[in-house]
Simulated assay, not measured.
Amino acid sequence: MSNLYLVTDSEICAQAGHTVSQVVEEACRAGVRWVQLREKTVTTHAFIELGFEVRQITQAYGAKLIVNDRVDVALAVDADGVHVGQDDMPPALVRQLIGPGKVIGLSINSLLELQLAREVEVDYLGVATIFPTGTKQDTSSLLGLSGLREICQQTKLPTFAIGGINASNIRDVIRAGATGAAVVSAICGHPNPYEASKELIQLAIT
């Protein structure tokens, strides 16, 4: 399975002339098998409608659909899992709601949060923030490659690094020990999401 993880952003997609569904389709066609649907501003109704659209695409390509934060939306569209941050619903409660067969991802931003994560049942970690990025305004605690390497060395869980990752640095992220890389702008904001995804996948495995 590809170790490239697409995290959607409808505003960045729109600025590049794409819809979220178009970007997901092109990314999955290129080989992406992890898609996180992240919508912070739309109504619940619109989020669910988009979720059903994206779910059809991910199912067609055998990709996993993870919903950011919204357990209700994930349940409504029968997503493969939920990704939560430190301030979202606790993973233990997420597990109670979505059941044992679904995936739970947890964002961590420090070694302390990694230590606390050992007390909860999650399936993978999203490790942030690696490099400066326009999609995450609070980058006061950038980990950099050294911080990423330290976290990866201290966990056996799969780790997806995120934050400012693109074609110029994705190899460094994988070499630092990350299982994979999660990207937003590098695909959503690219004129050709298919070609961008293909390039990133190739770089991540070489």
Rank of each mutant, 00 (worst) to 15 (best):
G189N: 02
L65P: 07
Y124C: 06
N68T: 09
L93E: 15
T41E: 13
Q86L: 12
Q59F: 02
N166A: 09
G147Q: 13
D69G: 02
E53W: 04
V120T: 15
L203S: 00
V183K: 10
G101M: 00
V23P: 04
V32M: 12
G163T: 08
S10V: 05
G163I: 02
T133M: 11
Q154F: 12
F52Q: 04
K40Y: 06
Q56S: 14
T58V: 15
L75W: 00
V73P: 06
I151D: 02
V184R: 02
Q96N: 14
L142F: 09
T206R: 06
F131D: 03
A178H: 03
I108A: 09
T43N: 10
V42W: 13
F160V: 05
R175H: 13
M1N: 08
E199P: 01
R55T: 00
F160T: 06
V42L: 14
P132Y: 06
I205F: 08
I48E: 04
G101N: 13
E49R: 15
I104K: 07
P100N: 09
T8K: 00
S110Y: 10
G177Q: 09
T129F: 13
T44A: 07
I57D: 07
R33E: 14
H83G: 10
C188G: 05
A27Y: 13
R95G: 13
Y194R: 11
Q96K: 15
E199H: 03
I162G: 02
